[in-house]
Design a protein around this nucleic acid. Structure first.
Length: 582
RNA sequence: CGGGCUGUGGCGCAGCUUGGUAGCGCAUUCGCUUUGGGAGCGAAGGGUCGCAGGUUCAAAUCCUGUCAGCCCGACCA
């Protein structure tokens, strides 16, 4: 197949679009792959379509290969199924809702759990029908509060979502693992650099969940990984390793000290170190007690919760949220302090909390035998050497403290380092939430109904176009991996010389006949323009018919390395076939 | 939702302080020259200056209102 640039619907831009920040956005617009039509809405131009279709094909191949079957739902959906799962309201403002002419409520699907569940329920009734996995590659809609970074985060995007239906937990686990393996094949074929991180199950109520994150400095998600193993996790999912307990025998007695004007950790540490106690304190020796209030879904009453963590660490709101889920939480207001006089702001200690029945959870580093400087529940007073397990016993531990680069890895393999990534896939053991909502049962061998258990698995297909560009570009343009490149070779004529043009025409025809997709720059532009466009567009192999032709050679250039080799005219086709077919 | 910024040919921008015929670069069209790294010269087409109201003899420019967009944060299967 030959596409002539003289007629290709393409206009490249010399300047970056004003609204673009990240490299993929700039380059995809400049090279003419996409154009913005609305915030978070992009049109795909011919070059972009080809890349998108290539990625889609790889996803489809691997999904089919693992035995998933493709179907497709409408993007425009009725309200009722989403009412049944409560998501019509629970999904919140991110759901695009609309009305038809009769006033009926509709939505644009953000994901399709409901429809898949109902569809399986409508067709299958026997245990013999299971397991089954269905998928679709569909446009999804989410009314993102702030779309950004071009097609990396739009309000309309192409997503592959699949759902597994199994009769028992073992089956679900197998379906989950099959997806995990398929995702690894897909992302490997796409040439991506990515990690699989443990994710929190969140509000969906499932058990196991992992995210596939493509590494990119412009990524929105922060994750950590170990320097000593392939351990990687979302910050929310990091489990703090607890140090060994210390024997209580021989530990110094707790002492209350007058510590005037020390409402903050910093002022307290400074005061103690100036007090001549014969040792040096750091913020990590203090136990900071943070008060929040929590409320279970559906409950009306807020409940107090105290969190004790080393004074050198802040509470990570996302980690706290994940730890408390599904309960919601809020910071205490002045009125809450007023209502509970035993809470002495700045000097809250474990004693008052426990004496007054406030649930008290501590950081896992607060193990038995550790001694702390903490509040004495009295203005301007702190207690030193308050020992966990001797002077106070918390109600449990909680993962609420921030995770920092340099912290020990949970698997003991090394220390953690922070990195950023873009979520490209998410696999999830949903369990029976949706099956319960729609009473999806299979009739078992014994004639009794068995509740089906589900998994849901997503890949951001259109996002992958941007992610690949994000990971594979240089200052001149995009560098596509062969598997997704819009064309196999980019053929340019460098001069206007008729023999060069004729040779290029002949070569284009031969390459096409050999089964390659050729982007043929037959324009009357100057060589500089053609080279610049070729590098911007990013086809991995660039072939130049130019001055070398007089010596019987044609230039073959590698887009990534910039290496060029002169190949005798009659060897060009086999050489390129070798390169492309690898 | 909070903070910051911006709306002027297809794209990127200047002009606004100090009101007076709307300008530059890229792109596009034509002619001549040029042809291995985004060419040169000459000519041309293309803009109700986001929208509404106001002030004024006169508004891209001043005033009021409004809408939209972008960036940071919050949010985010």
């Amino acid at each position: 197949m030959i596409t002539r640039m003289s007629s290709l619907f393409l206009r490249t831009l010399r300047e970056d679009p004003a609204d673009a920040e990240v490299p993929s956005h700039k380059l995809l617009v400049r090279a003419g792959y996409v154009r913005r039509v609305a915030p978070g809405g992009y049109s795909w131009l011919p070059l972009g379509m080809r890349v998108l279709r290539n990625i889609e094909a790889i996803v489809r191949e691997e999904m089919d290969a693992m035995g998933a079957q493709e179907i497709q739902f409408p993007a425009l959906l009725p309200r009722e199924p989403y009412e049944a799962t409560n998501r019509w309201t629970e999904y919140g403002p991110n759901l695009f809702r609309l009305k038809d002419r009769k006033g009926g409520d509709y939505l644009l699907g953000p994901t399709h759990e409901e429809l898949f569940t109902l569809t399986v329920k409508g067709e299958y009734t026997s245990y013999k029908d299971y397991p089954v996995t269905l998928y679709q590659i569909q446009t999804k809609y989410r009314d993102e509060a702030r779309p950004r970074a071009g097609i990396l985060r739009g309000r309309e995007f192409l997503m592959k979502d699949s759902y597994s239906f199994d009769l028992d937990d073992e089956g679900l686990e197998a379906s989950y693992q099959a997806h995990r393996a398929a995702y690894i094949r897909i992302f490997d074929r796409l040439g991506l650099q990515y990690v699989v991180v443990k994710a929190t199950s969140g509000a969906m109520g499932g058990s196991a969940s992992e995210e596939f994150l493509a590494e990119a400095p412009t990524g929105e998600d922060t994750f950590v990984r170990s320097t000593g193993s392939d351990y990687a996790a979302n910050v929310e999912a990091v489990v703090t390793p607890a140090p060994p307990a210390i024997p209580l025998a021989g530990l110094p007695e707790a002492q209350v000290h007058h510590t005037p004007d020390t409402p903050t950790i910093e002022t307290l540490v400074d005061f103690l170190n100036a007090a001549g106690l014969g040792r040096t304190f750091t913020a990590a020796d203090t136990l900071k007690n943070v008060l929040v209030k929590t409320r279970m879904p559906g409950a009306t009453e807020w409940e107090l919760l105290a969190i004790g963590l080393p004074g050198d660490r802040e509470v990570d709101v996302k980690r706290l949220e994940a730890a408390l889920s599904p309960a919601e939480f809020a910071m205490l207001e002045e009125s809450d302090f007023a209502r509970h006089p035993f809470l002495v702001k700045g000097y809250i200690g474990p004693k008052a909390l426990l004496d007054n029945g406030v649930r008290y959870l501590v950081d896992p580093r607060v193990v038995e035998g550790t001694a702390w400087v903490t509040g004495a529940d009295k203005v301007d007073h702190h207690v030193i050497d308050l020992v966990a397990g001797r002077d106070f016993t918390p109600d449990g531990t909680i993962e609420a403290a921030e995770v920092r680069a340099g912290d020990p890895a949970p698997d003991g393999s090394g220390i953690l380092e922070a990195a950023r990534g873009i979520e490209i896939g998410h696999i999830f053991q949903l369990g029976r939430k949706y099956a319960d909502a729609f009473s999806l049962d299979a009739l078992g061998k014994d004639g009794k109904p068995v509740r089906v258990t589900m998994g849901s698995y997503g890949i951001g297909v259109s996002r992958l176009v941007a992610v690949i560009a994000e990971q594979s570009h240089d200052e001149r343009g995009i560098i596509w991996p062969r598997n997704v490149s819009p064309y196999d070779v980019h053929l340019a004529v460098a001069g206007k010389d008729e023999t060069q043009k004729a040779a290029a025409e002949k070569l284009a025809a031969e390459l096409s006949a050999a089964g390659l997709d050729v982007l043929f720059d037959d324009r009357a532009a100057s060589p500089g323009v053609k080279f610049a466009d070729a590098e911007l567009i990013g086809v991995p192999t660039i072939v130049v018919v130019g001055r070398g032709l007089a010596n019987g050679v044609i230039e073959v250039k590698d887009r990534r390395t910039g290496e060029r080799q002169d190949v005798p005219v009659d060897e060009v086709v086999p050489t390129l076939l070798g390169l492309v077919r690898g």
